[in-house]
Computed example of a mutant assay.
Amino acid sequence: MTALAKAARPAEAGTAYADDFYTWTQEQSARLRAGDLTALDLQNLAEEIESLGKSEFNSLVSAWRVLLLHMLKFDHQPARRTRSWTLSIKEQCKEASFVLKDNPGLKSRLDEALERAYDTARLRAARETRLPLATFPETCPYTRDEMLTRPFAIDPDDTTA
């Protein structure tokens, strides 16, 4: 039976959300496209849509977490600075910028995202550097603007880092 034929059946006759998520998504999208709104699994659809928004927020937090981790390592272990750290910083700046450009509604949650990212970045920095946790400030020492615009080059003549 095709997904469209399944979509024509009542919601209770379709694939259960918990039994086969992929098939459920295909049936739900076919029902939406067909305008068969009465057959939709509204509760689970609402949860999945909400989950998509959370995923975008988590993408921002993730990019900032890696960015902050490498900034902390860069600042607290100058003798161990690597080109990899500087490239990772630049990469995560771009990732965060893309997420924000694609999701302007996240602007109201930037402080929350930064706080979440820093909390974990601080712990990871202590673990990876083997420096005491107290070495790293409890609150983020960087502004969002500094995170996105501060230059990070190991060799002043290196324009690729």
Rank of each mutant, 00 (worst) to 15 (best):
L52D: 00
L52T: 00
G53I: 00
G53K: 13
K54L: 05
K54D: 08
K54M: 00
S55Y: 07
S55K: 10
S55L: 08
E56C: 04
E56H: 05
F57A: 12
F57N: 06
F57I: 08
F57G: 05
N58G: 07
N58T: 08
N58D: 13
S59C: 11
S59I: 02
L60T: 04
L60Y: 09
V61Q: 07
V61W: 08
S62H: 15
S62Q: 13
A63C: 06
W64R: 14
W64H: 06
W64M: 15
W64P: 02
R65N: 10
R65D: 10
V66G: 06
V66F: 08
V66H: 10
V66I: 14
L67Y: 01
L67I: 05
L67E: 01
L68A: 06
L68K: 12
L69Y: 05
L69E: 11
H70T: 04
M71R: 15
L72T: 03
L72V: 03
K73T: 03
F74N: 01
F74G: 02
F74Q: 03
D75I: 09
D75K: 11
D75L: 09
H76G: 01
P78D: 06
A79C: 07
A79M: 11
R81F: 11
R81Y: 09
T82M: 08
T82Y: 07
R83Y: 10
R83M: 08
S84Y: 11
S84L: 12
S84Q: 14
S84M: 12
W85N: 07
W85M: 13
T86Y: 09
L87W: 14
L87G: 15
I89H: 04
